[in-house]
Computed example of a mutant assay.
Amino acid sequence: MKVRHYTIAITLLIAMVFQIIPVPVQLDLYRPDWVLIVLSYWVMALPHRANVGVAFTSGLALDILLGTAMGVHSFALSISIYVLAANYQRLRNYSVWQQAVIIGVISALYHSLLFWILRLLTDVTFRFEELWPVLTSMALWPWIFWLLRKVRRQLRIT
């Protein structure tokens, strides 16, 4: 059993742990979209191994872990990753800082979709505080990008 065959799954599991790890209420508003960031990296780096199907199953796992209605996160993740996957060849050529802005846009799309789906299902109201994860995801992107690229190169994942 080689670790490199399961690296994408392992990094997604670690991202899910970071997504649900308890933090103080004041910091929870700023929690980045760990699963979205990690999925975004793998979709841009290895689109033949990480795709919308992986996003859908990761979203179902997030729905279970977070206790939301089944399909809410999976739909939002699938649409967000689809937009990213459709443009991955162009996005790969951007600098890491330009990619961070794109990740911010994708994260904003993700949160907008989550809001509208939850709005249809429940009686939630929109608060601008819900968009803080967009900024923290943008800020974390360069470091997550470099870390995952180092892992991918060391393990020679293709």
Rank of each mutant, 00 (worst) to 15 (best):
M1T: 10
K2G: 15
H5P: 12
T7M: 03
I8Y: 08
I8F: 02
I8A: 11
A9V: 15
A9Y: 07
A9P: 01
I10G: 06
I10C: 06
I14K: 02
A15S: 12
A15V: 06
M16Y: 01
M16D: 04
V17P: 04
V17W: 12
F18M: 14
Q19L: 05
Q19P: 05
Q19W: 06
I20G: 12
P22C: 12
P24Y: 09
V25S: 14
Q26F: 15
L27W: 13
L27V: 12
D28E: 14
L29K: 14
R31E: 15
P32M: 02
P32D: 01
V35W: 04
V35M: 06
V35F: 01
I37H: 07
I37E: 13
V38F: 02
V38N: 11
L39F: 10
S40R: 11
Y41P: 02
Y41H: 04
W42V: 06
V43D: 00
M44G: 05
M44R: 07
A45V: 13
R49V: 05
A50C: 10
N51M: 06
N51T: 05
V52G: 02
V54K: 04
F56E: 00
F56T: 00
F56D: 00
F56A: 02
T57V: 10
S58D: 09
L60W: 05
L60T: 08
L62S: 14
D63M: 01
D63W: 01
I64P: 05
L65A: 08
G67S: 09
A69L: 10
M70F: 15
H73V: 00
F75S: 01
S78Y: 00
S80P: 10
S80T: 07
I81W: 03
Y82L: 05
V83E: 03
V83C: 13
L84N: 10
L84Y: 06
N87E: 02
Y88F: 03
Y88K: 07
L91T: 11
L91I: 15
R92Y: 07
Y94M: 12
Y94S: 10
S95V: 09
S95C: 07
S95H: 12
S95W: 05
S95L: 11
V96K: 11
V96I: 14
W97I: 15
W97C: 05
Q98H: 11
Q99G: 07
Q99Y: 11
A100K: 10
A100D: 01
V101G: 08
V101M: 10
I102R: 00
I102K: 04
G104E: 01
V105K: 05
L109H: 06
L109C: 07
S112G: 09
L113V: 12
L113E: 03
L114C: 05
F115S: 10
L118Y: 07
L121K: 02
L121A: 05
D123F: 15
F126N: 00
F126K: 01
F126E: 07
R127T: 13
R127A: 09
E129Y: 13
W132Y: 12
W132Q: 11
V134N: 08
L135V: 14
T136P: 02
M138P: 03
A139W: 03
A139Q: 13
L140Y: 12
W141P: 03
W143R: 08
I144Q: 08
W146F: 08
L147P: 03
L147C: 08
L147Y: 01
L147E: 00
L148M: 09
K150E: 12
V151F: 11
V151S: 05
V151T: 07
V151E: 04
V151A: 03
Q154C: 09
L155F: 10
L155T: 11
R156P: 01
I157L: 15
